[in-house]
């Protein structure tokens, strides 16, 4: 089955991203296809490579990046929500004159439009939303 996942909250404050991760991992291990994980609202904050959590704690961003690498997961960050919250890839950082090396998008994530969320709803058999 093709499942779309939506993450509406950032890491650490809310459990939403952790639950979404555990759900996504379980779905993949069961052989389901994850059509896309879409990060919206504060959920875009899961995609910054700048977090440095204590070593004995889980690294939420890394969890997603590694899951993406293992299963070729499509992790999409909403561009409008990302711009509000300072999540930038190379081309966005350049376009907004934020200076060399200011891009902070973590590996495995890509920035795109809200249309990707609607497409998830259209293409996937199920859409599961995690938030607060």
């Amino acid at each position: 089955m093709k499942i779309g996942v939506v993450v509406n909250e950032g890491p650490y404050t809310h459990q939403a991203s952790d639950t979404a991760y555990q759900f996504t991992k379980a779905a993949l291990e069961k052989g389901h296809e994850i059509f896309r994980v879409f990060f919206y609202h504060d959920g875009v904050n899961n995609a910054t490579r700048m977090t440095v959590p204590p070593q004995d704690e889980r690294n939420v961003q890394k969890n997603w990046s590694e899951l993406s690498a293992k299963y070729n997961l499509d992790l999409v960050v909403c561009i409008a929500a990302a711009q509000r919250r300072g999540i930038l890839d190379e081309s966005e950082a350049k376009r907004h004159g934020k200076g060399e090396g200011s891009a902070n998008l973590a590996p495995g994530f890509r920035i795109s439009g809200l249309g990707q969320l609607i497409e998830s709803g259209i293409q996937a058999d199920r859409l599961v939303v995690f938030g607060d």
Binding site: M1, I3, F23, A26, A27, K30, H32, R126, L127, V128, V129, F130, G131
Partner: peptide
């Protein structure tokens, strides 16, 4: 949880 999602036509949060 995954089985419940698959076993119902849709999910509402």
């Amino acid at each position: 949880f995954v089985d419940l999602v698959a076993g119902h036509d849709k999910t509402q949060a």
